[in-house]
Simulated assay, not measured.
Amino acid sequence: MPLDMRSVAPTVPGVPWWGAILVAAGSTLLGFLIDAARGNELGSAFSAFYVLGCIAAVAAVQHRALFTAMAQPPLLLLVAVPIAQEFLVESGGGGLKDLALNVAYPLVNRFPVMLTATVAVLVVGGLRIFLSRPPVPAPARAGRRSARAAARAAKAPSRAAQQDRDTTVPAKPARGRRGRP
Score class of each variant (00 low, 15 high):
A84D: 06
L115W: 12
V108F: 14
F111W: 14
A100L: 14
K97W: 04
A80W: 08
R133P: 00
F87N: 08
L127H: 04
R133N: 01
F111T: 15
V108Q: 08
P112K: 05
F87Y: 07
S132I: 01
A120L: 13
V121R: 05
K97R: 06
L99V: 10
G92Y: 02
L77Q: 11
D98K: 02
L88E: 01
Y105L: 15
V113D: 10
G92I: 04
V108Y: 09
P112S: 06
L78K: 03
V113H: 03
L107S: 15
F130V: 07
Y105F: 10
T118K: 02
Y105W: 11
A117V: 04
V123P: 06
S132W: 00
Q85C: 09
L131P: 00
E90C: 00
L115H: 06
N109T: 04
P74M: 09
T118V: 02
V79R: 00
L99Q: 11
P134A: 09
R110W: 10
E86Q: 11
A84W: 01
V121Y: 06
A80C: 09
V119G: 01
L96Q: 03
E86H: 12
E86N: 10
L76N: 04
E90L: 10
N102D: 12
F87G: 02
F87C: 02
L131H: 07
V113K: 04
T118P: 02
P134E: 11
G94F: 13
G94H: 11
M114I: 02
A80P: 10
F111Q: 10
Q85D: 01
P134M: 04
M114Q: 08
G125N: 07
F87R: 11
R110D: 15
R133Y: 01
P112C: 07
V81G: 01
R110I: 05
R133G: 00
V119T: 04
Y105D: 12
P106L: 11
G94R: 12
G95P: 08
G94Y: 13
E90M: 02
L78S: 14
R128G: 06
V103F: 15
Q85R: 08
E86F: 12
V123K: 06
V124H: 04
G125S: 10
R110Q: 15
F111L: 15
L78W: 13
R133T: 03
G126K: 03
A100I: 09
P106R: 13
R133I: 01
R128A: 05
N109E: 09
V124C: 08
E86Y: 14
S91A: 14
S132L: 01
Q85L: 00
L76G: 07
G126L: 02
L107H: 06
L75T: 11
V89N: 05
V108C: 08
G126I: 06
G93H: 03
L122N: 14
L131Q: 05
N102Q: 12
I83M: 09
L76D: 03
P82S: 01
P82E: 03
P112T: 07
S91T: 09
S91Q: 12
E90S: 08
G126W: 05
V119W: 00
L127I: 11
L131D: 03
G93P: 00
G92H: 05
Q85Y: 00
T116G: 10
P112F: 03
L101F: 10
L99E: 08
I83K: 01
A84E: 03
M114Y: 04
P112M: 07
L131N: 07
L75W: 03
P106S: 13
